[in-house]
Design a protein around this nucleic acid. Structure first.
Length: 593
RNA sequence: GGUCCGGUAGCUCAGUUGGAUAGAGCAUCAGCCUUCUAAGCUGAGGGUCAUUGGUUCGAAUCCAAUCCGGAUCACCA
């Protein structure tokens, strides 16, 4: 049980005994005491004054005295200032907490609750390489999955590959036209970049053709429709849907190049999936569900044969679910996928990590699934996050302002290597160890930079300013871990030693232990909010306090053996919690750096 | 125009189930490495919490209006 819930229960019990009135945890607040006052935790009394007909002073004093008498193991002293009852927790309580958990690597993780959550993230188009926006998506999805696991859920990580549609046909057409049979192997290019280059080339060629047609007096709109390369792409889409063998073969070939490229990037950033779905499979299922919905009367057909759903009663519009030619639209395949996922996992929740520009889409998706009476509908949850922008605004492929994922990763690792060399603290490392360390630091900095921000907020990335390695960063937290480990390499805590509390805990010792005690609550909150920044911020605060502690107090040369053992345990628990918390964010921590 | 999200220090962000004098980092300035890692520590300066009104013992937090920025309202995905 956490301290706060312990205090809550003690207060509820005390109020029942003193005033014979029943209260619940919601009736009053418990905060950490502000540093300028004496005490560890504070009961805010204002909300209790009216029902109890008491003055703040009288209630505070009565309650404080009663608490100390009835729970001497928990409370050692109190003071009342205005309506605030400040309680000091006994050193014995904190020491016991430390003793119970300092060697526990699973501290803060809950036992399985038997519930299943499916998380979908990454979900790239298969026609161009990943960029910084994808990285935010992947880091978020991966981290939320891990946090939910720590909170007791069974988590299935999934990805939907948007592998069909006009976008991939554009790359295919350009490859046919310009590549002369080139391949990623023959050119030494990473597969996703290779295919992406043809996508760009398609755009360039298209522009050229439109200009040429306009020069003959055609309007821009007509020119865009008539451009031969665009017509070729559209024809290719038709051929693809018709299953024309050579088109399918090319499509498979190009997709496989892209997947090989993605796999390299996923591996570098330590991301993985339990199951990958392909839009080329799920869109047909969606169409089947549209047919069923039509029979149930959930959907209706317009004169031109297109199929719609009427969401005006829900305050939205009519929404198309199938084109007049019978082909699937974007949402059709998502309806199918929701069912496929539910049938496979019978999930309690299905989280979609998708940018906030699709808020409307997911609102519609959930409504449609509800109307169809699908059991999958209730658990649908859109984890919506903000765009990553440049100081100049949105990243645009056409203007070449996209920050490529592989480039930024390379850059981060390069700078990490440079900084590490400057400091010269790991000269005895082997080349292999160094490579690993640079990865840990570089990637850690990138992940931390992205995950420390509340997902729902837009974030700005300035390529001119390199991501920092000082202050509120992964390096800082990693450094703190390495520092703790350095101490522990000299001496491990003696597990047979029994801590005394003859000497009072010093402020920084206590502050650290209080923080460590809050780790399980941080995981819980992070999971509840689907928000990794809670954990990231927590780890930073812990690391910061630890650095102050280590600067201020000696561990190995502590005044007494008792203090030394206490501090060694604090070091070990801090190192464990930092490693655990960073792991939930996908960030590794080094033993040395 | 409708809907949704955001606006906190020069910059990047915490804090928002209402609590005491609003917090960090970067940047600036001043100190600290014969002592477990200085990617660190200590201190200083820096705020109309977008604006106005309301709710109450108490508002950055809740409500209303307004201003600014963004997203979305596609037979694109």
């Amino acid at each position: 049980m956490s301290v706060t819930s312990g205090i809550q229960q003690a207060v509820i019990k005390a109020l029942a005994q003193l005033y014979s009135q029943p209260f619940s945890a919601k009736d009053f607040q418990i905060n950490q005491t502000k540093p300028e006052f004496e005490g560890d935790y504070t009961v805010v009394l204002f909300s209790l004054l009216k029902p109890l007909k008491q003055s703040p002073d009288a209630l505070g004093k009565t309650l404080g005295e009663h608490l100390i008498q009835t729970s001497p193991a928990l409370f050692s002293s109190f003071n009342v200032i205005k309506g605030f009852l400040n309680l000091t927790i006994t050193d014995a309580y904190w020491t016991a907490m430390l003793n119970d958990h300092y060697g526990n690597n699973a501290y803060g993780r809950k036992a399985g609750n038997g519930k299943t959550i499916v998380v979908e993230y990454a979900s790239p188009n298969t026609n161009k390489p990943l960029h910084l926006g994808h990285l935010r998506n992947i880091f978020l999805g991966w981290s939320v999955s891990e946090i939910l696991k720590a909170d007791g859920y069974d988590v299935i990580k999934t990805c939907i590959a948007n592998d069909r549609g006009i976008h991939i046909c554009k790359s295919m057409v350009a490859w046919q036209k310009f590549a002369n049979g080139a391949t990623p192997e023959s050119t030494g290019t990473k597969g996703d970049h290779f295919v992406g280059d043809y996508y760009v080339q398609f755009g360039t060629e298209f522009k050229k053709e439109v200009q040429a047609l306009k020069a003959t007096g055609m309007s821009e709109e007509a020119a865009e429709k008539e451009a031969p390369i665009m017509k070729a792409a559209q024809q290719m889409l038709v051929d693809w849907e018709a299953g024309k063998p050579d088109v399918i073969a090319l499509w498979k070939q190009m997709n496989s190049w892209v997947y090989a490229g993605f796999d390299i990037t996923y591996k570098r950033i330590g991301s993985d999936f339990d199951k990958i779905y392909y839009e080329s499979d799920t869109y047909l299922l969606g169409k089947k569900l549209v047919e069923e919905g039509l029979q149930k009367g959930v959907f209706f057909k317009k004169d031109d044969n297109s199929v719609w759903v009427d969401l005006t009663a829900e305050g939205l519009d009519e929404k198309i679910v199938q084109r007049k030619d019978g082909t699937a639209v974007y949402i059709t395949q998502d309806i199918g996928l929701a069912v496929v996922k539910y049938e496979a996992y019978h999930y309690d929740q299905s989280i979609y990590v998708v940018g906030d520009e699709q808020n409307y889409h997911f609102k519609v998706l959930k409504l449609i699934c509800e109307k169809l009476g699908l059991p999958s509908s209730e658990g649908i949850y859109h984890l919506s996050y903000g765009m990553v922008e440049l100081p100049s605004g949105r990243m645009k492929t056409r203007e070449g302002t996209v920050v490529d994922a592989d480039d930024i990763i390379d850059e981060m690792i390069k700078v990490a290597a440079q900084k590490t060399e400057e400091l010269g603290k790991v000269k005895d490392f082997t080349a292999e160890e160094l490579g690993k360390l640079y990865n840990t630091i570089g990637l850690g900095a990138l992940k931390f930079f992205i995950l420390r921000v509340d997902p729902k907020k837009r974030m700005i990335f300035n390529p001119e300013e390199s991501i920092d390695f000082h202050g509120f960063t992964a390096s800082f937290v990693q450094f703190s871990h390495a520092r703790a480990k350095a101490i522990l390499r000299n001496e491990q805590p003696d597990n047979n030693f029994t801590l005394q509390h003859s000497e009072p805990l010093l402020p920084l010792e206590k502050e650290l232990i209080i923080l460590l005690e809050k780790y399980p609550a941080a995981i819980e909150q992070s999971a509840f909010e689907h928000n990794p920044s809670v954990i990231v911020n927590y780890c930073y605060e812990l690391a910061k306090t630890f650095n102050s502690f280590v600067t201020e107090h000696r561990v190995l040369k502590a005044e007494t053996e008792n203090k030394k053992q206490l501090r060694l345990r604090v070091c070990q628990m801090t190192a464990n919690v930092i490693a655990s918390g960073m792991r939930l964010s996908g960030i590794e921590v080094p033993e040395r750096m």
